[in-house]
C-alpha cells in the first residue's frame, strides 16, 4: 500500500456570474465539479484536458489561491504521520503549511517580478518564512542555482528576468519553487511556452529534481505526450469532471472513455509514415450526458487501478 501525500475528495469550485447588467438572476458555473484523486509520495499525476475544463481552477484551489466551494483536501502531516485536512489549520499553521506546496506557472515571462533581480526573486520564499541567517540564505540561493543548471550562479544573481531567455527564466522559477524543499509542486503547463529543443531539458530537470528531492508533481497540461513523459498516472478532465484516471501507459494503450479516446487520437505523431486514425465523437452529446446524468456519479475500477467515470456514454461509443 502506497503512502499518499495528498488526497482530494469531491473537490468543487463554482463561480457565480450575473446574467446581465440589470439582472439579479445569477447563474453558476461549475468549473470543478466533484473531482477526487490522490497522489502517493514521489509520484506525479498528470491532469489533462482542453482549456476551460477546470484543470487550472483545480490547481489554484490546491495551492490555496482561491477558496474551494466544497470538498476535502487532505495532506500528509509529517509530525503526526497522518493525513490531515487543510481546512482546520489556523493562520500560523497555514503559513508554515504553505512551505509544502509550491506552483510553477505557464508563462515564464509573467511569473517573475520584472522589477526584482534573480537573487531577490529566489530569496523571497526564505525571507517570507524567515529561514536561516542572511548568509545561509544567500548560500542556499547559490546552491539552488547550481542545481537547476544556471552556472556560474554569480552571473545570474544580479540579473533581471528580462535579460534571460524563456528556458533560463523557467529554471529560475523552478529554483524559487524548490528552495523551500516543498513536498508537492503544482505545475501549470510549465513547458508549453518554451521551444521544443529547450522543453525537454526543463522536463528532464524537473524529473531529476523530483527523484532527488522526493517531490510529487501535479502536472497540468493539454498535451498528453508531455504528460506521458512526466507522469506516473494521468487523469483526464472534461467539463469539470475527471472522466478517466489510470497509470500512464495503461491509459494510452487502453483508453475506455470516449473523450480519452478522442484526445489521444487527436495528437499529431512525429512520424510521416504513421497513419493516425481519429476517433470521432459528438461533443455536444457528451457534454449533455455528463452534465445531466446525475444518477451515475462516481468512478468504477476496471482493473489495473484504471478508473472510469460511470455516467452512461453508450450512446456515443
Amino acid at each position: 500500500m502506497k503512502k499518499n501525500l495528498i488526497e482530494v475528495k469531491n473537490l468543487e469550485k463554482y463561480f457565480e456570474t450575473s446574467a446581465g447588467l440589470f439582472s439579479r438572476k445569477k447563474s453558476t458555473i461549475k468549473a470543478v465539479d466533484g473531482i477526487s484523486f490522490e497522489i502517493p509520495f514521489g509520484e506525479s499525476l498528470g491532469l489533462v484536458g482542453q482549456s476551460g475544463c477546470g484543470k487550472t481552477t483545480t490547481a489554484r484551489a490546491l495551492c490555496l489561491l482561491d477558496e474551494k466551494t466544497s470538498g476535502e483536501i487532505n495532506f500528509y502531516n509529517s509530525d503526526t504521520k497522518n493525513m490531515e485536512s487543510i481546512d482546520n489549520l489556523n493562520d500560523e499553521e497555514l503559513k508554515s503549511f504553505r512551505r509544502n506546496i509550491q506552483m510553477i506557472f505557464q508563462d515564464p515571462y509573467e511569473s517573475l517580478n520584472p522589477r526584482w533581480n534573480i537573487k531577490d526573486i529566489i530569496l523571497e520564499p526564505l525571507n517570507i518564512h524567515n529561514i536561516g541567517s542572511l548568509n545561509e540564505r544567500e548560500d542556499a540561493v547559490v546552491e539552488i542555482l547550481k542545481t537547476v543548471g544556471l552556472t556560474p550562479p554569480e552571473n545570474y544573481l544580479p540579473r533581471y528576468p528580462h535579460e534571460l531567455s524563456g528556458g533560463q527564466r523557467q529554471r529560475v522559477s523552478i529554483a524559487r519553487t524548490l528552495i523551500m524543499k516543498p513536498k508537492f509542486v503544482v505545475c501549470d503547463e510549465p513547458t508549453s511556452m518554451l521551444d521544443v529543443s529547450i522543453r525537454i531539458s526543463i522536463m528532464d530537470l524537473m524529473l531529476n529534481l523530483a527523484k532527488d528531492l522526493e517531490v510529487s508533481y501535479l502536472y497540468i497540461t493539454h498535451d498528453l505526450a508531455v504528460a506521458r513523459y512526466m507522469c506516473n498516472r494521468i487523469a483526464v478532465m472534461f467539463n469539470g469532471k475527471i472522466v478517466e484516471i489510470a497509470e500512464t501507459e495503461e491509459l494510452l494503450k487502453n483508453p475506455v472513455h470516449p473523450y480519452t479516446k478522442r484526445l489521444i487520437s487527436s495528437i499529431p505523431v512525429p512520424d510521416p509514415t504513421y497513419e493516425r486514425v481519429v476517433y470521432d465523437i459528438d461533443f455536444t452529446e457528451l457534454e449533455n450526458i455528463i452534465s445531466t446524468d446525475t444518477k451515475n456519479i462516481g468512478m468504477v475500477d476496471i482493473g489495473n487501478e484504471h478508473f472510469v467515470a460511470t455516467h452512461d456514454v453508450k450512446g456515443i461509443l
Binding site: 497555514l94 504553505r98 511569473s111 517573475l112
Partner: peptide, 9 residues
Amino acid sequence: FVDSARITG
C-alpha cells in the same frame, strides 16, 4: 508572480 508570492505565504 503575485500568485507565486501568495502561495509561498
